[in-house]
Amino acid sequence: MSGVLLLIGIISTPAWSESPAPSVHWGGAAFPDQYSTLTGGLTLNRFTPVDGLGNKYDSTVGNTLGFNLITLSWTQHWSGIFQGWSTNLTAGISPTSDEPSQYFQNKVVHQLRQLPSVPTVDARKETDVMIDGSVTRWFPLFRPKVIFAGAGFSVGTIYQQGFLRAGIRRMPITPTLYHSDTWGDVSLRASVLGRISYQDNGAVLHAVRSTAGLVQPAIAFGQYRTTESGETIPTWEIELALMWDSGIFVNTTGQSQKQFAWSLAASAGPMRFETWNDSMGHLSERDYGPSYGVALTLDVLRAWNIIQDFRTKPATDPPAAS
Results as ranks from 00 to 15, higher is better:
S322C: 10
F249N: 02
I238E: 07
A30I: 04
E274K: 03
E239T: 06
L42V: 13
T174C: 11
G293K: 01
W183Q: 14
G289M: 00
K107H: 14
Q255F: 12
S267N: 00
R165W: 03
L296Q: 11
I306M: 11
Q114P: 08
T174A: 12
K125N: 15
S2H: 14
F221Y: 13
I248N: 03
E18R: 03
G293P: 05
Q216P: 00
A295G: 11
E231L: 11
T75I: 09
V108H: 13
G92M: 08
L301S: 09
F260Y: 13
F153G: 00
S263W: 03
L42N: 08
S86E: 07
L112E: 13
T297P: 03
H179D: 14
D287K: 07
G54A: 09
T226G: 05
A266W: 02
V208T: 11
T253H: 08
R311M: 13
T226Q: 14
G202Q: 00
I8P: 00
G40I: 07
V50I: 14
P14G: 09
S59P: 06
N88S: 13
Q160A: 06
A295R: 06
G28M: 09
V155R: 04
F142E: 14
I8W: 03
V215A: 06
N68I: 09
G150P: 06
G41N: 02
G230Y: 07
E18C: 05
E274S: 08
Y288I: 12
D245F: 01
A315D: 12
T75R: 05
P290G: 08
G167S: 08
V109A: 12
F148K: 05
V208R: 00
S267Y: 01
N305R: 14
W236P: 00
E231K: 10
P49A: 07
D287R: 06
P14C: 09
T96R: 03
P100F: 04
T39G: 10
G52A: 15
D185G: 07
D181E: 15
F249T: 03
A220H: 01
T275V: 08
G66L: 00
T37P: 04
R225H: 15
P172M: 07
I173E: 11
P22I: 03
F163G: 01
P95L: 02
S291I: 04
N63F: 10
T48W: 01
G184I: 02
A261L: 01
P49M: 05
D122L: 07
